[in-house]
Design a protein around this nucleic acid. Sequence first.
DNA 1: GCACAGTTTGCGCGTCACGCAAGTTTCGCC
DNA 2: GGCGAAACTTGCGTGACGCGCAAACTGTGC
Lengths: 202, 202
Amino acid sequence: MPERPSLRERRRQETRRAISWAAVKLVVERGLGNVTIDDIADEAGVSPRTVNNYFSSKAEAIAARQHDRAHDIADRLRARPAGEPLWEALQQAVFAQCRDSAADEHGTPDPQWKEGVRLMVTEPALHGELLKAGAATEQALTQAIADRIGADAERDLRPLLIAATVGGALRTAVQHWLRTDPPIPLETLLHQAFDQLAEVLP
Amino acid sequence: MPERPSLRERRRQETRRAISWAAVKLVVERGLGNVTIDDIADEAGVSPRTVNNYFSSKAEAIAARQHDRAHDIADRLRARPAGEPLWEALQQAVFAQCRDSAADEHGTPDPQWKEGVRLMVTEPALHGELLKAGAATEQALTQAIADRIGADAERDLRPLLIAATVGGALRTAVQHWLRTDPPIPLETLLHQAFDQLAEVLP
DNA sequence: GCACAGTTTGCGCGTCACGCAAGTTTCGCC
DNA sequence: GGCGAAACTTGCGTGACGCGCAAACTGTGC
């Protein structure tokens, strides 16, 4: 049973989301260079100083949602039944996150999210932040994998290696998803990526 | 026969290296926060404005060498004999780059380079830039792989997927290399990473 | 209810990214 | 061998950013 977050903590996450949403919204419609911290603060209804209180840069605010997805995937992996084979559990965690994320974001239509991701690979300043989020995914996955296979994440290469491979498959699917002109659902591409992983290795 | 770079181009690369070296040197010994662009410019013997002419940020200057290594690996892959199996060629390209880079840097002892890399994963501002260099590696590898296996990098997932997997193995090896207390040669860890890739997949 | 820790906010300083307009060096070509 | 053009470097100025500090405010626990 999840501990109910204190009322204060809930407000905190609320403003965090508000700031991140405001940042994405403004930057998508105006371009990165034409949005200042003041604009974001104004849109989110907080002080500019508060924005830098939650995020240490504009880019970090925009990438916050990707960061959250990272932890979500790791949590879902931990929630899989213990007897399930590792590779199966990993795929299910990824697929489930992808499936649910399309619905849980309250008012955000899928295309706007896609545009946000596309923006992050286009603008160099944002690209770094996106990659950081990917690294966070792998970091969280590494620990979860180590726990599951009973390995010491500090001494064994394998948890790190598996996490990096999964992260690579994820990035591959997303990158391809962004550029297919008759759009293909991300989940389909994720399936393809995982399936092809086995056959490309010797 | 390699096209001789114009004298101008050589000077350009020279100052580029000088700036990057100066940045790494100063930041390693003083810490990132205690080094300004002016300091770097002073150490490299150029104007502060020129530094921002080559690199759009302090972090980019520091990560420049990693960026060069990226293209180097891709070039080495292209230089492998055409008949060689893909996976073998990839490993040889990576190993060779790792082996040579220990010797080609003129006066830099290995420990200083290690310290530089360690710095890049420690400082968040630099971490993003390091990941960008990794992404550049994968980008270059993707095209080289696509050429070698005769696939269209725009339509086929596999070049992207293979490049991402190799990049993951690389990052894994480096990350482990940084934290082993009785230090293990990076090349050994690279071998381990590649060997274990096959056995961790289903 | 009351003291206290956590949060927001305004203010100010040092740094940074970048456009602009010279001054200086290099290259291609005759 | 020299000359016009293009590229590179440099100084200056502006707007934005990251962050430390101290004061007002708001939930939290006894």
